[in-house]
Design a protein around this nucleic acid. Structure first.
Lengths: 239, 239
DNA sequence: CAACGCAACATCCTATAGGAAATAGGTTCG
DNA sequence: CGAACCTATTTCCTATAGGATGTTGCGTTG
């Protein structure tokens, strides 16, 4: 069976070492970008055919994704992508982010190394270039940039456990509606700059405050997304 | 192939609905109880034979366990159980617990329902009976009781995300050396009572303080475990 | 016309087989 | 005596086939 070599993976980038790992990344991207719509059923065999692999590694990747909270598994009914965040879940998410990332920013101000401070500052400045782009692509680049900035701070805090928790939270954030707040990019850039400045200065209190202010503002910016579409907040809503 | 019905699962309790789920719980228990020693290699086929299932569900369970942080996967070298917590990781764990569980206790004091307060109080009182027992069994019951108490509070806080994060943290705690601190049970019971009382009273500030005091004391109690065995803290330590 | 029951279908779940890579042990050379 | 190389074994990784179960559509009946 030498077909293994002949196959050319469609959407996976030059297989790392194990197939399951690549499949995991591929499916994760599909879910993050809503190519697999939230709440939709996920057909294992179809996915395997699409990715040109056998169902086994797909199943393995799905199991990891379930632990990440991106898909759910109903015992004898298969996998489904996690539905969109409800308003309550959205609020909960930002409450926890406020707690975790606030403390993280404070720690980063005191624990970060010189090179880490430099990278954080650079990333905060890079956010300006986001203006260019068109529609969806713009949204994607902005989201990635924002995630990178926050992860850089989480890394600088010097707590692997905190960083893991925050990363997990961020993947949940992608389950939010694809909504690009008007003037969100400039405001975000300014707020990022403030956070970066406080961390550079080594001011723990100021960094934590700046981060909390940023998250509160971001939460406010994203709130209108719930009014755009009258999406099913609850399975049997009455309003 | 009717052997599926004839098989009598060795250490799984009356299969739930999917085999992979049972296998997941079984392996999780094996790791938690150090029946699979930390840092050891995990042979998929051997595990499958031991549990009387095919390697496929074992692989799936292992993938979930990896996301939980209980096992690690080296690309072409198989799975290994996560090694024991180093001193730095232990400190990190309690730092994050202090942050998360402190806030959680405070929220529980204001958000908990009447029945939740009642259950928390009952669980705090039940801790007294731990005195009975012998060696390992005593350790296991105590650990379970403590985990239940903390989870009850996390549930009462009304934040699913916070609860998930804390649960994940607790599973990491089980990677600590199996060490039963002298007089740990009575002290723990008293501290649990204080936390429960504050939550019952609805005093958010007092609940958070009591929880932080409890965790600080627990951290102190477990510290001697690092001196007992001169375990490899770092791969190439110099001290 | 609606609700219930039945049957066919699709899908998931598990088991088995075979190819490829890494690890371990022995041997040989410097 | 030590280190490097080679070989054999073990183990992992992927693919495929078959049985069990949930779901869906249609027909029938009240």
């Amino acid at each position: 069976m030498a077909q293994q070599q002949a196959r050319e993976g469609r959407l996976r980038p030059a297989r790392r070492l194990t197939l399951a790992e690549d499949v995991y990344e591929s499916i994760k991207t599909l879910v993050m970008d809503h190519i697999l719509p939230p709440g939709e059923r996920v057909n294992i065999d179809a996915l395997a055919r699409e990715l040109d692999v056998s169902p086994t590694p797909v199943r393995e990747a799905l199991a990891r994704l379930e632990a990440d909270g991106l898909v759910r598994k109903r015992p004898l009914s298969g996998y489904t992508t996690t539905p969109l965040l409800s308003r309550a879940e959205f609020d909960d998410l930002f409450d926890v982010r406020l707690l975790l990332e606030g403390a993280t920013a404070g720690r980063a101000a005191t624990h970060a190394t010189a090179v880490q401070r430099q990278r954080i500052s650079a990333e905060a400045g890079a956010s300006i270039d986001v203006e260019a782009g068109d529609g969806y692509r713009r949204h994607a680049t902005f989201t990635t940039l924002d995630a990178t900035f926050h992860d850089l701070i989480a890394e600088a805090a010097g707590s692997p456990l905190l960083r893991d928790s925050i990363t997990r939270l961020h993947s949940h954030l992608h389950l939010h509606r694809l909504y690009f707040p008007p003037n969100g990019a400039p405001d975000t850039t300014i707020e990022h700059q403030r956070i970066a400045d406080a961390i550079i200065a080594g001011d723990s209190r100021a960094a934590a405050d700046a981060m909390r202010a940023h998250l509160t503002a971001a939460r406010e910016r994203h709130l209108p997304a719930f009014d755009r579409l009258r999406a099913p907040e609850a399975p049997h809503g009455s309003a």
